[in-house]
Structures are given as structure tokens and as C-alpha cells.
């Protein structure tokens, strides 16, 4: 059809016809990135919240319970909860891992009123449980981030 062909030709000849669409798409992408980032931060602060915001209820409950059980057991076994005044790299790494549990970090500190006891195997296991809880929660937050970006999850 001559009319249709001429319209297409005009668009091909003048790329500015498509120009308004690109900023809108970029803004949409930025908004999605910001939303995904906010979901990841929410998932880090409260285990499972990131997935709950995406309406992935099973994963949300699983994340909350698994991280919660690990923190409860770790603190109950009197594992070492690292703080910001670490003296070496391992302490700082342990602190980063423990912080991964988000708000459960403060729960663990409140629960472990007698302080850590790593003179027994139980306390040593507890330290690992706490660190694993943190890393697992960070993994879950990353998973929620990817899911929010629309990647296969």
C-alpha cells in the first residue's frame, strides 16, 4: 500500500520519530531497578520480606523460618556473635556474615544474654549457624532482587 509504505519510509528516514520512546523506557528500567533494590534491602532487613513483597509466599515463609531457626539455634548454642570492634579480618568477616541476618542480628544479641561460649563444640557450631543464617539471608535477598528484575528465579 503506497500510504503505509511512505509512513514507514518517513520513520526510517527520520529516527527522531522514535526518540520520545527511549527516555520513557529508560525511566521505566530505572524504576524497576530501584524497586528491585528496595526489595532486596527489605529482604535483607527482615528475612523473607523481599519474597513476600513479590507475593512468593512459600519462599518468604521458608526464608523467614530457616534463617530464624538457624539464628535461634546459633544463639541458643552460645555461638560467637561478632561486633564492629573486630581485631582481625576473620572477626570483620564474621561480623559481615552475622549482619546478613538483618534484624535477627539484634534478636540474637538480645537472646544471648550470657555471652558466647566457644570453649565447647556447641558454641563453635553456634558460631557457624549464625554466620550461615546471615549468608543464607543474603542469598535469599539476592534471589528476591533477581526475581524483582524479572529474571528467572
Amino acid at each position: 500500500m503506497p500510504g503505509g509504505a511512505s509512513t514507514t519510509d518517513a520513520r526510517v528516514a527520520d529516527p527522531s520519530v522514535f526518540a520520545p520512546a527511549r527516555p520513557a523506557k529508560q525511566a521505566d528500567g530505572m524504576q524497576n531497578q530501584s524497586k528491585a533494590f528496595a526489595i532486596a534491602v527489605a529482604g535483607w532487613l527482615v528475612p523473607g520480606l523481599g519474597h513476600a513483597l513479590l507475593k512468593m509466599w512459600g519462599r518468604a515463609v521458608a526464608c523467614f523460618l530457616t534463617v530464624g531457626v538457624l539464628v535461634f539455634l546459633g544463639a541458643g548454642m552460645r555461638g560467637n556473635i561478632f561486633n564492629s570492634s573486630g581485631v582481625d579480618a576473620f572477626d570483620r568477616l564474621g561480623y559481615a556474615a552475622d549482619l546478613g541476618t538483618g534484624c535477627f542480628y539484634f534478636f540474637a544479641r538480645a537472646m544471648e544474654s550470657q555471652g558466647p561460649d566457644v570453649s565447647h563444640a556447641n558454641g563453635d557450631y553456634g558460631t557457624r549457624f549464625l554466620a550461615t543464617a546471615g549468608i543464607l539471608n543474603l542469598l535469599a535477598a539476592l534471589h528476591a532482587f533477581e526475581a524483582a528484575r524479572g529474571h528467572k528465579a
Binding site: 535461634f72 539455634l73 541458643g76 548454642m77 556447641n122
Partner: peptide, 17 residues
């Protein structure tokens, strides 16, 4: 929060983990 201390054997710890 007062919680009773959890005491687990090596195997129980590994199993739970």
C-alpha cells in the same frame, strides 16, 4: 530474651544444619 541453652551432639548439629 532469656532462652535455655541448646545442647546438641555433633551428629544432631550436622543433621539440623
Amino acid at each position: 530474651i532469656e532462652a535455655s541453652e541448646v545442647r546438641l551432639s555433633h551428629f544432631q548439629s550436622m543433621l539440623l544444619f
